[in-house]
């Protein structure tokens, strides 16, 4: 294993960097979309229920199947992976965002409105600061889930740690398999721990 690392370091760190890049890209797009969807859901209760249900269905589609559905449309590669991973994230993010914001004490939001804040001010000065932990927890769950599902993205040529795993499995190269699984599991566990620590400090 160590020999594999010293001989082909690029075969490890390149997939690792690719993976991190994939997660970052997905995260930024997911949060942006989820933020918009959350605003819409907060203002429209029935649409909110409907959307949550739809996203729940999407979330329950196995990842290989979702990639397969998308390939005819967006082809092989990273774009498809990002789209699928973003779709999964919407369920986690929207649920955490909306429940987090709704759990803010209505007495506080009522008072905020009553003393003359606009809805945007209520959101940015009161609801988001008070729901910051729930919001952050949603993001943490999404990141960890993306790291995990992201390994499967290698199956559609999107790169990442999955390539190590899949190549290793195909060639029965134990070193690759081990590096692939250790790094992807380690990345998920480490990120989770770091983000959780950050969450505690919020």
């Amino acid at each position: 294993m160590i020999r594999f690392l010293t001989r082909h370091p690029e075969k490890i760190y390149i997939p690792l960097l690719e993976h991190i890049e994939l997660v970052f890209l997905t995260l930024i797009i997911s949060v942006a979309i989820a933020a918009v969807l959350t605003l819409i859901c907060l203002r429209n209760e029935s649409l909110s229920l409907w959307l949550q249900q739809l996203l729940g269905v999407v979330y329950s589609i196995p990842s290989l199947a979702l990639f397969a559905i998308l390939i005819p449309v967006t082809g092989l590669g990273r774009t498809t992976a990002v789209i699928a991973l973003t779709a999964y994230n919407q369920y986690l993010l929207l649920r955490n965002f909306t429940t987090g914001l709704k759990e803010v004490d209505p007495a506080v939001t009522d008072a905020a409105k009553g003393i003359g804040m606009t809805w945007l001010q209520v959101l940015t000065k009161v609801q988001i600061p008070l729901a910051r932990r729930a919001l952050f927890a949603g993001i943490r769950l999404a990141v960890v889930s993306t790291i995990g599902i992201g390994t499967i993205a290698a199956s559609i040529n999107a790169g990442g740690l999955g390539t190590l795993l899949f190549d290793g499995l195909r060639t029965m190269n134990i070193a690759r398999i081990l590096w692939g699984s250790i790094l992807s599991a380690g990345l998920a566990i480490l990120t989770n721990a770091l983000l959780r620590a950050a969450e505690e400090r919020l």
């Binding site: 007495a107 009553g114 003393i115």
Partner: peptide, 29 residues
């Protein structure tokens, strides 16, 4: 919003912003 700024509003649970100091609560508007 303009209407509410012409009126004070106080409720039973006070509804103070827990993440702001007294100073910031009072001077929020």
């Amino acid at each position: 919003v303009q209407l509410r700024r012409k009126m004070g509003y106080v409720i039973q649970q006070a509804g103070l912003f827990p993440h702001m100091t007294v100073e910031d609560n009072v001077s929020v508007i």
